[in-house]
Design a binder for these strands. Sequence first.
RNA 1: GCGCCCGUAGCUCAGUUGGAUAGAGCGAAUGACUUCGAAUCAUUAGGUCGGGGGUUCGAGCCCCUCCGGGCGCACCA
Length: 664
Amino acid sequence: MFQDIEKRIVAAAEAALLQKFSLSLRVSLEQPKQTNFGELAIPVAFQLARELKKAPKAIAQELVSAMGPVDGVAAFEIAGNGFINVRLDRAAYTAMLFDKGLPAPQPAPNAPKTIVEHTNINPNKAAHIGHLRNAILGDTFVRMLRRAGERVEVQNYIDNTGVQVADVVVGFHFFEKKTVDDVKALIVSTGRPFDYYCWDLYAQVSAYYGQNAEALEWRAEVLHSIEEGSGEIAELAHLVADAIVKAHLKTMYRLGIEYDVLPRESEILHLQFWATAFELLKRREAIFLETEGKNKGCWVMPSSAFRVIGGKDKAADIEEEPEDKDDSKVIVRSNGTVTYVGKDIAYQLWKFGLLGKDFYYKPWTRYPDGHEVWVSTDRSVVENAPHFGGGREVFNVIDSRQSYLQDVVVAGLRALGFNEEADRSVHFSYEMVALSPRTCVEMGIQLSEEDKKKPYVEVSGRKGLGVKADDLLDKLIETAQAEVDDRHREADAGERRQVAEIIAVGALRYFMLKFTRNSLIAFDFHEALSFEGETGPYAQYSAVRAGNILKKYEERFGPLDFREQLTPAGLQRLFESEDLWQLALLVSKVDHAVRRAIQAGEPAHIAKYAFQLAQAFNTFYHDYRVIDETDVERRVGLVWLTSFFREQLRETLGVLGIEIPRYM
RNA sequence: GCGCCCGUAGCUCAGUUGGAUAGAGCGAAUGACUUCGAAUCAUUAGGUCGGGGGUUCGAGCCCCUCCGGGCGCACCA
């Protein structure tokens, strides 16, 4: 809606530029600083001032006269030193909103696929708040893309053969002397959840290595067995990884996060994805066998492939330190095994459909809503399994600390000649979640003298230091529940629990999304448990209030039927009020907000927009007694605005993965 | 040492490809509930946008430099 008008204005301005000055350039619009300047502004006169050697104001004047009338625009005004401010035709705009609504664009059936990979938690312990940020960011970005009409596939990569799983297996096998059956019993037992059990065990094993370096041989033995793929230890590893993946998916589902496919490292190994990629890399000479230095005997990628030498004169640098081969990245170790980066290059090739190989798939689980998750397998066991991978664009939601490795992966693609795919490989990076010192104290975490001096403390799985996702969610539900119980003693207990859960999820998701990606979050219980101010519950509350008005209205005046009760003339009179018009305008910008947020790659922008919507409505709620309005036409108009707001806020919150509770 | 990121109100953060008078939330102070329930709203106080230089009609944003902080630079992932 809003975008349609934007497009028309841009087109008219560009046409005028061409006609008046024979200039062909892209015109951009911006939001005026103050609402009384109009709804949009065209700042193009400024950038032309020098080129045309004219005052911006004069240029703006000429452009406006050349533009003529634009559908949906009431007037163009020259303001300031040369802004062209746009005033929309309010009556026409609101009539269109009323008439057509804002249909969400549908994904084209054969549209190119966008792949978003997120979560990717090592399947050896419970998920913690750092993982939550990853999954919530990834899931929200998926929702944004889908809302914009894109076809999206969600992947959650499972490293079920790595060191972290091996260490927990070391714990079960060597420390606790547990058999496969023992662990199976542990998984189904009603005691401490299995992922929590592993959390502690992993921390114990890590600590033990610190004291007993010789124990690392156990890890090597386990890793070796996993690679062999048979025997008690390998079976243990599979058991642990699968059980933990189940736990992770369950945790994430509590937050409304679903996946389409779980590609596993075990299949990347068994199906020899790496061997294929290795051949490609050797053939294209993207990597070479190092014959001297510390990397002797390894296949390496030269640093020049993935490092841009910044600033200084390159020749001078080379003269001083001739080709530092130590900077090369090892892809294949001297013992012939491939590193994580190597596997990741193969995996990234698969995501684009460039490897010439695919996994087999089988169903992993079906969510209560009917959506099915598939997992990779190494042989065909299901007929008509869907096809995954082969995306046009790939977003990898990964912690910013791994940017160096992501650069190497992209360089690998580039070295193979896949430049376009390299350009469409996006490291969707974000800063870590750490713990505030206050929260550490609350949790009884012993801090070292060094840590005490820091403004925050890094989460560490190996130290078992962190806030588990399920614990946090439970605590949020408990806090919300107390409020709900207090306010709605009469309501059904089961329903109150549901409401509390929706509020808790709203609080958590909003908290993780309100910060931009590269802002480090120092997690603090006090802040996260707050339901006031710029929070998810604040937005939910405004939607609930709107719902209450609608409910009350129907109780008193009968069913809503705007078509019957509202006329264009009535709308026009209503939106002569500046504040009501501003509210309607803001509410109409959902798609505009989503598009801009995608462009910026910032889910936080949608969160901000949702908050602004809620804030605007709360002010309206305070200023207008909708039900008590005696003028019938006006009353119906206010109710329509309320309904429109609720509908659009629901859409916006939906993009954030936040639901609206029945009451609050 | 090299590379990347950050420094905006007491605190936590926004700030659209450089545009009009730098904005929120929390915290502080004051005020507003006989029900569309205050998980709210209104008002006030609070800024040399880390320092300096440059580019520009115009800089929180771009360039240089200095100061302060974080992360990365494994034959771990």
